[in-house]
Design a binder for these strands. Sequence first.
DNA 1: CTCTATGCAAATAATTTGCAAGCAC
DNA 2: GTGCTTGCAAATTATTTGCATAGAG
Lengths: 138, 138
Amino acid sequence: MADSIIERLRAGGKKLTKARRAILEALERSSVPITAGELHARLRKVRVPIDLVTVYRNLGMLQKLGLVTAVGLHDGQMRYEVRHGREHHHHIQCRGCGKIVDLMLCPIKKLTAVVEAKTKFAVESHTLEFFGWCPQCR
Amino acid sequence: MADSIIERLRAGGKKLTKARRAILEALERSSVPITAGELHARLRKVRVPIDLVTVYRNLGMLQKLGLVTAVGLHDGQMRYEVRHGREHHHHIQCRGCGKIVDLMLCPIKKLTAVVEAKTKFAVESHTLEFFGWCPQCR
DNA sequence: CTCTATGCAAATAATTTGCAAGCAC
DNA sequence: GTGCTTGCAAATTATTTGCATAGAG
């Protein structure tokens, strides 16, 4: 796990517990965003006796620190992925099998100024997700 | 309420009930997406005695028929807006007061071909939401 | 009349909160 | 030691489902 993550935790007055370390490592292992439940299941499979509540609490905290990003794919639950040290990107999910694929692109940056001019809002973030049918399902 | 909506309902084997008409009218009155709960509250305020369950069931059905669109703004609940007869667009929500404003723009159409080429998915839809701070809250 | 729609109660599912005990620093 | 953390139980919130009755076409 990157040193800078530990620094960011310290800067937020957070401690590096066993549970927390396991959560961060599991998140870093995943190439696509996963739900709190999936994360919890993966940890238990590796014999990390952790409570689901702890997973939720840590995901929330990591999000506030900007180390993790939440992704909502409209299926009733949130998914989370490491943000720290990874490039900003978006996703596409298959309507058939639910598979998620990273899309290493973002056409929004140039648009932010337009949005700010139109709305007078100070744009802080955005979400962009695609839905469709993967090669196997279509 | 537009005739074509009634036609679309009929085409789907749906009836035009009092509750359904009220839901559609309330949705058409709203300029921004609203939650099932908000919709329910507005109907009761106008003395339309309808059950929350009926609201949910109708929103789900209208979505399947393509008459309504679901918008997820990452705050634990879905919002819905009329799609039929309105132009495709996106939204921005204030992190402070929660206010939602329509953004009549969409930079994604041109991008769809790129995404399809990259992923081999057949892209069906997308979501794009902005978050930031409105003039009053920043 | 027939089939869809609704209300009411109850069930799910995801996520959050309270509190006492545990662990990092 | 002291304060952040965790586990366990319980509460919340959003949404869904079962079933008998009511209503549209």
